[in-house]
């Protein structure tokens, strides 16, 4: 059953399907960005495929892909759909460069609306033709896109000025960058220079380089200094 989906796709769409895989039983097809909407429409409307059940859409950030020699631009956008009548499912993938707009699938499956808003919020991928592209999980004042690998995880952007009282600071082990740092990759450092694999905290201990890489600079809506930077 599952083979049939990919075969049908290849037979009907031919060269539009750039690659397919069925790693661990998950059927997947890769298409070019310009065919994204068309293939999605085909998935829904084709009588044999009949993918009428929208499941999910998400993105994956591969910031160093081009440098490391792998083909393809920075972001993977991944769609999951299922057919309620045929009970099969497929994963559709396309690739988009930073800032490149992806056609919105809202006209095909209404459920794509919030997922696309979330991807826009978390990765900063714009969707063309989306009726209402706003942030959904974060607040409008937030700058940057946290799920990009180079957004430092501990960079907060408070909406309320913190109180200025003694004794309310976090104590270890809840300081920044504590925990289990051995295998953690510091992407911001990697992308903006060095190629240190271990955590910045350990690097600092060994006197390798400054403690925390700052990543790209943002200014807060209020114009205040970010308390995270003040330390």
């Amino acid at each position: 059953m599952s083979k049939k989906v990919l075969e049908r796709l290849k037979a009907q769409l031919g060269s539009k399907i750039l690659a397919t895989s069925d790693f661990r039983g998950d059927d997947e097809a890769i298409v070019a960005l310009k065919d994204w909407l068309e293939v999605a429409r085909f998935l829904r409307d084709d009588a044999e495929l009949a993918f009428d059940h929208y499941l999910d859409m998400t993105a994956v950030d591969h910031p160093m892909r081009e440098e490391s020699g792998e083909p393809g631009p920075r972001f993977d956008v991944v769609l999951f759909v299922r057919s309620s009548t045929k009970n099969h499912r497929v994963r559709l993938r396309t690739r988009a460069a930073d800032g490149e707009a992806v056609p919105s699938l809202f006209p095909v499956w209404a459920g794509a609306s919030w997922s696309e808003r979330e991807i826009f919020d978390m990765f900063g991928i714009p969707f063309e033709g989306h009726p209402d592209l706003r942030r959904i999980l974060l607040y409008p004042e937030f700058q940057g896109h946290p799920l990009r690998k180079d957004y430092p995880i501990e960079r907060t952007q408070p909406l309320v000025q913190y109180r200025d009282v003694d004794g309310i600071d976090k104590l270890p082990p809840f300081g920044p960058d504590m925990g289990q740092p051995w295998t953690r990759v510091d992407w911001a450092a990697r992308m903006h220079g060095g190629d240190v694999q271990v955590s910045p905290a350990i690097g600092a201990q060994q006197g390798q380089r400054p403690a925390l890489s700052k990543g790209p600079e943002y200014t807060l809506a209020s114009g205040d200094k970010n308390p995270a930077d003040a330390e």
Binding site: R135, I136, L138, Y139, K149, I153, G179, Q180, R184
Partner: peptide, 14 residues
């Protein structure tokens, strides 16, 4: 979004 706690980002560092 009022309870967004950065689950997916937190997973990427442990």
């Amino acid at each position: 979004g009022y309870l967004h706690r950065g689950f997916e980002k937190s997973c990427e560092r442990g």
